[in-house]
Design a protein around this nucleic acid. Structure first.
Lengths: 197, 197
DNA sequence: GTCTATACCAGGATAGAC
DNA sequence: GTCTATCCTGGTATAGAC
């Protein structure tokens, strides 16, 4: 295969994915039809089906992008000095998410979809596993640097606490998607006060 | 209107709602079609549309039932003595939910749906508001009885913390619906260790 | 690779008899 | 109130020309 063709293919997929994200962001996930994606991309049905197997395929790509960005952020912040505090990390994740998606309604719809779509569910499991691992090593570093814990103690604490932090991130996403008068700042302040430090 | 007719109407609605819940529990929410509900109920399309405006209507009823049961549980446990600890309350809610729904996949799909269905979203907002209020007064009682806090202090603490507890409940639901090898016990133990007490 | 046009299907809802 | 049969819409995916 000639290299130009491969590059072209990749960039075309990215272009379509971006268009889909814009559409999803505007109308939500279920309400967006292939016709919407076609319009938004400026391409045609045929062109899109030449690059993706179908709507499901596109969704997988979009999900990867969004969650990958979060994993990248946690990893990046893990090597920042001074290390941000746990609640501060949540705040930074939230603002990155808001920047990418506006209201993260799309993610909530993605969860709903993953319940019945095996491929999406598998992908989600994989990505959240990686996110958890990244969060876990961040937490371990935090306990070492902030409280001078031994590596073993820090790892154990991190493993226990990571599920709590993930839940808070998920709760934040859910509530900001569904509660009309959601007060993100109040939520994050509450995390600062009452999450383990 | 004659009383028998009204009673009949109510019991018929309940019968249909139960059938719908069984179907949802088995196949998930989106994958369940009206045809499935019709089969499961042993009734006909006409009969069902005589009692509900459509699928959406049925969903609203189901959602009410499920969340109402949770609210009732929190209120009931608030007057139990000795008052269960916060993490214990979560454990009891989780087991009640498992009893009603098995894997609470249906709830996650409901969230996804609520993003785009205004009626469902409004209902969800209302119900979660009530759940939050119930949880809040429970937490206040807890701080008073366990730590001898003044009413004012207990109320303030409760208001700050309630969002954290709700997030944990939501995280539990999400993860138990989507993570194949989800370990509910480990999750709850982690809550016991690291949530405020 | 991409376009237009269209086949095809699932599923929610209704009509009309009883 | 309930049944059967059927309509109709919205939406995915494909066929075939360029």
């Amino acid at each position: 295969m000639p290299k130009v063709t491969e590059e072209y293919r990749v960039s075309k997929r990215a272009e379509i994915t971006s268009a889909a994200m814009r559409a999803f962001r505007r109308k939500g996930f279920h309400a967006t039809s292939m016709a919407d994606i076609i319009t938004e991309s400026g391409l045609s049905a045929g062109a899109i089906y030449g690059h993706f197997g179908g709507k499901n395929d596109i969704v997988l790509e979009v999900a990867s992008r969004v969650i990958d960005a979060r994993i990248g952020k946690v990893e990046e912040l893990s090597s920042a000095r001074p290390l941000p505090a746990p609640a501060e990390l949540l705040r930074l994740l939230a603002s990155g998410l808001a920047h990418d998606l506006g209201r993260p309604a799309m993610l909530v719809q993605l969860w709903g979809e993953a319940v019945t779509e095996p491929a999406l569910r598998a992908l989600w499991g994989l990505l959240v596993g990686r996110l958890r691992a990244a969060y876990c090593s961040y937490l371990s570093l935090w306990h070492q640097s902030e409280h001078g814990a031994t590596v073993a103690d820090a790892d154990r604490l991190a493993a226990e606490q990571v599920v709590l932090f993930l839940s808070c991130a998920q709760g934040y996403i859910l509530q900001s998607a569904l509660v009309t008068e959601f007060d993100g700042e109040a939520f994050l302040r509450s995390m600062e006060l009452h999450l383990p430090r």
